[in-house]
């Protein structure tokens, strides 16, 4: 598995969730490859309904993966405006294309300019991802 971290994305450091701002209001969200490495292959997935309000740090859905069940945590405040039906039917797409077809939801953000400050992006991504990769390797979580 390759562990790439594109600099145009915004990463939640704690939950390994990525955000791609698509306009001033809309942000696409998915799980990054290190987040997936600690989960294993996804078997089942549920996402909150369109129209539901979510807060940063609160669940936007639940998953069952090879290693555990858990909650999918939102990196920003907002409202779900689109869910990826393809990954609901075939959650393994999240593993196979985490930054592409494996996206999870699109949120209409309440305050992206503030929330985005809590995320890692641009030139800071390289240093952060390097440290994270080292941490994961040191613990034996990835090869």
């Amino acid at each position: 598995m390759s562990y790439e971290f594109p600099e145009n994305l915004f990463f939640d450091k704690k939950h390994h969730v990525w955000c791609l701002p698509e306009s001033e209001l809309l942000v696409r969200i998915g799980i990054d490859p290190l987040g997936l490495a600690s989960l294993g292959d996804l078997a089942y997935l549920s996402l909150n309904q369109n129209g539901s309000k979510v807060s940063r740090g609160q669940p936007i859905g639940m998953l069952e993966a090879a290693k555990m069940t858990g909650e999918l945590i939102s990196p920003v405040d907002g409202e779900i405006v689109e869910r990826n039906q393809h990954v609901l039917n075939d959650p393994f797409q999240v593993n196979s294309e985490p930054y592409g077809a494996g996206w999870l939801v699109v949120l209409e953000c309440e305050n992206w300019s503030e929330d985005s400050k809590k995320l890692v992006t641009g030139r800071k991504v390289e240093a952060w991802s390097k440290d994270e990769l080292k941490r994961y390797r040191d613990h034996g979580w990835i090869e």
Partner: peptide, 8 residues
């Protein structure tokens, strides 16, 4: 039978 669940 074992299981693990993480929460927010």
């Amino acid at each position: 039978g074992l299981g693990i669940h993480s929460n927010a």
